[in-house]
Amino acid sequence: MDDTELHRERILRHVSPIITGRFVGYQASYTREVSVGKPLAIFVFLTAGIAQLVASLMRMKPARRSLKDLRKGPEFLVTPVRLRDDLGQTYEIEMHGQLPQSALHRGDLVQVRTEPQRDRTLPVKLTQVVNLTTMQPLTPRIPTRWSHLGPAMLLQAAAGLVVAGVVLAALFH
Rank of each mutant, 00 (worst) to 15 (best):
A28I: 03
L83G: 13
M153N: 05
R141N: 07
R64N: 03
L154W: 09
F45H: 12
V162I: 15
A28H: 04
R145A: 13
F23W: 04
T133F: 04
E5H: 05
P62H: 04
K72C: 05
V24L: 04
V36Q: 03
H96F: 13
R82Q: 15
P123E: 14
R32M: 10
R113N: 03
L57F: 12
R8F: 03
G73I: 04
E75I: 03
T114I: 12
V110F: 00
I19V: 08
L83D: 10
D86E: 14
I19F: 00
V110T: 02
T133V: 06
F76T: 05
R118Q: 11
T134D: 10
Q128T: 09
K125T: 15
Q52H: 06
G37Y: 07
L104S: 07
R13H: 09
T139W: 01
R120L: 12
V166E: 07
D119K: 06
G165P: 04
S16T: 09
E115V: 09
K61I: 11
T121H: 14
S56E: 13
P80W: 10
G165C: 07
L171P: 00
Q117L: 13
T79D: 11
A158T: 12
Q156L: 14
R10C: 05
R65C: 02
T20I: 01
L155A: 15
S66F: 01
T121Y: 11
S66Y: 01
V110L: 00
R32C: 01
K68H: 02
G97S: 09
R118I: 10
S102A: 14
R120N: 09
T114S: 04
G165D: 03
R22I: 01
F23Q: 04
H148V: 06
R141A: 08
A55G: 02
R8W: 01
K38Y: 12
M95I: 11
H96V: 14
R120Y: 07
M60C: 10
P143I: 12
L171R: 12
I42L: 15
F23K: 04
M135Q: 13
R13W: 04
G37C: 05
T139R: 12
E33V: 13
Q111S: 08
P123V: 10
L83P: 11
R22M: 02
R113S: 08
V81L: 15
A159S: 12
A63H: 06
I93G: 03
P100I: 04
R120T: 14
L104F: 02
L99N: 08
L53T: 14
F43Y: 12
A159M: 12
R10S: 08
M135V: 07
T47L: 14
A28P: 00
T90Q: 10
H7S: 03
V81F: 11
S66K: 00
F43E: 05
V81M: 15
G88T: 06
Q111Y: 00
Q136G: 03
L77C: 11
Q156M: 12
A41E: 04
E92F: 01
V112I: 06
Q117C: 03
V110C: 01
V162T: 15
T139F: 00
G21F: 00
F172C: 06
L12C: 00
R59E: 15
S16M: 03
S147I: 04
L109I: 00
Q52I: 06
